[in-house]
Every structure is written in structure tokens, then in C-alpha cells.
């Protein structure tokens, strides 16, 4: 009986958390549409989330693209299909690995940073100070971060896709003997516009999830250093799980049938 009660309690807690996050997302959406707008904070977040994430996105995707080329070449050799490396690298990076890896890297780098920053602001009464200075924390902190992520994470995903394909290209042409011009031609011929658009759309959704989770857990953190640490950890866990779940759903929506 106690096992059933524990499962029930965990289920209720999970549903309550989903409800709170949904309400938080709804509140964020309503604040996006109503002034005042903090353009300076928005511009700062474009830099923080977008520009400063370029190195980690570039390194992650170039190594993954290279490894993917090696794997496809080795696997394809089992049934004389080594020649499909350009096509599979392109489709694998653009449809799946690019957006997912960028989303997870953003969750690791940006979600954690947002959650820790806002949680520290809460613990040190800076959120209360914002309110007493007639500034709504959702408008000043959440809206600029979520909007910036909505805009720059798809761009980062596009950059990640290109760098990932470049990683595969370098490995294939420098170590596996592929012709450079033929590799690029195969890549360009095989990719469709819908592949690229689905990749960017996934990036937008993952960006919103990453920023929203950072803000939600930051604003709802517990007290003290332990509260900040717990909020940061929970935000990254939630963002990563939601990104992977959203990826599954979006893949179904874009590519089933």
C-alpha cells in the first residue's frame, strides 16, 4: 500500500509541477505582449545566449559530425554502402543531432546560468528590490531571456548543422578518401528545405524550453546556497528532459507519414 501511495504522491507532485510550469509559461507569454519592454536587457541576452555559446556549439557539432562520418563509413562497409556518408551525415546532423546537441548544450550552459543568476537574485532579495522599484521581475528578467533564446537558438542550430556537416566533410575527405566536390554536391542534393526548416523550428522550441526552465527554477528557488544549487540542478534536468521529449514529438510531427 505504501508503494502505491508513494507512486501516487510522486505522480501528483509531477502533475503539480507541470501545472506550475504551464502557468509560468502562460504568464511569460502574456508579459511578452504587454509593455514595458526592456530592449537593453534583450540585447544583452542575445549576446549572452547566442554569441557566447558559439564556441561550445561549434566544438560539440564538429566532433559529432566527424564521428558520425566515421561510424557511417564503418557501418556502411558491412553492406558496401560506404558512399552514403555525405547524405547520412547531412540528414543526421540537420534533422536530429544538430538541434538536439545545440539544445542540450544550451541547457547545460544557458539554463544553468540563468537559474543560478536568478536564484541568487532571489536569495539576496534583488527580486524584491526590483518589485519595490516598480519593475516586474517577469518583464525584466524572464521576457528578455526567453525572447532572446527564441531568436538565437535557431541561428545557433543552423550554425551547428553547418559545422557538423563540415566535421563530416573534413573526416571523409581527409581520411576516408572522398572527393571534396562530390561530397559537397551529394550533401546539397540530398538535403531538402523541409529538413532545414524543421531543424530551425526545433531550435526555436528548444531555446524557449531552455530559457523558460532557467527562469522558472531560478524564481522558485529555495533559500541559501543549497537552494541556488538545487534550483540550478533541477533546471538543467528539466530542460534536458523536456528538450528530448519535445524532439521526439516534433520529429513525429515533421517526419511521420
Amino acid at each position: 500500500m505504501s508503494t502505491i501511495a508513494a507512486i501516487g504522491a510522486a505522480t501528483l507532485a509531477m502533475l503539480a509541477a507541470i501545472g506550475r510550469i504551464t502557468i509560468f509559461a502562460g504568464q511569460t507569454a502574456s508579459h511578452v505582449l504587454r509593455p514595458p519592454f526592456y530592449f537593453k536587457e534583450f540585447a544583452q541576452q542575445l549576446l549572452q545566449i547566442g554569441y557566447f555559446s558559439l564556441p561550445v556549439v561549434g566544438l560539440t557539432t564538429i566532433f559529432t559530425g566527424g564521428a558520425l562520418a566515421l561510424q557511417i563509413y564503418a557501418g556502411g562497409a558491412r553492406f558496401n554502402a560506404e558512399a552514403v556518408v555525405p547524405q547520412i551525415v547531412a540528414i543526421g546532423m540537420v534533422r536530429e543531432l544538430g538541434p538536439v546537441l545545440v539544445g542540450l548544450m544550451i541547457a547545460a550552459r544557458v539554463t544553468s546560468s540563468i537559474a543560478a543568476e536568478i536564484a541568487t537574485m532571489k536569495v539576496t532579495e534583488q527580486l524584491d528590490a526590483l518589485v519595490t522599484l516598480s519593475t516586474h521581475p517577469m518583464k525584466y528578467l524572464t521576457v528578455p531571456r526567453v525572447l532572446a533564446a527564441l531568436i538565437v537558438v535557431p541561428l545557433l542550430t543552423g550554425v551547428g548543422d553547418i559545422i557538423g556537416i563540415l566535421g563530416g566533410f573534413l573526416v571523409a575527405t581527409k581520411t576516408l578518401g572522398f572527393n571534396e566536390a562530390a561530397y559537397l554536391q551529394n550533401t546539397a542534393d540530398f538535403l531538402q528545405l523541409s529538413d532545414i526548416l524543421s531543424s530551425l523550428a526545433k531550435g526555436a522550441v528548444f531555446g524557449v524550453i531552455a530559457a523558460l526552465m532557467g527562469c522558472y527554477y531560478g524564481m522558485n528557488s529555495g533559500r541559501g546556497a543549497q537552494g541556488v544549487g538545487a534550483a540550478t540542478k533541477a533546471s538543467v534536468q528539466a530542460a534536458a528532459i523536456l528538450i528530448l521529449a519535445a524532439n521526439f514529438i516534433l520529429t513525429g510531427v515533421f517526419f511521420s507519414a
Binding site: T120, M121, T124, E125, Q126, D128, A129, T132, L133, S134
Partner: peptide, 16 residues
């Protein structure tokens, strides 16, 4: 309402 108030917080609560 809030524009009528000023507040000094215990830890300062300055924006880092």
C-alpha cells in the same frame, strides 16, 4: 503606489 516608497534592504540587494 510603489513610486511613493523607497526601501533599504538588509543585505543591500544591489543589482550585481
Amino acid at each position: 503606489f510603489l513610486a511613493r516608497f523607497g526601501m533599504l534592504f538588509q543585505g543591500g540587494a544591489l543589482f550585481d
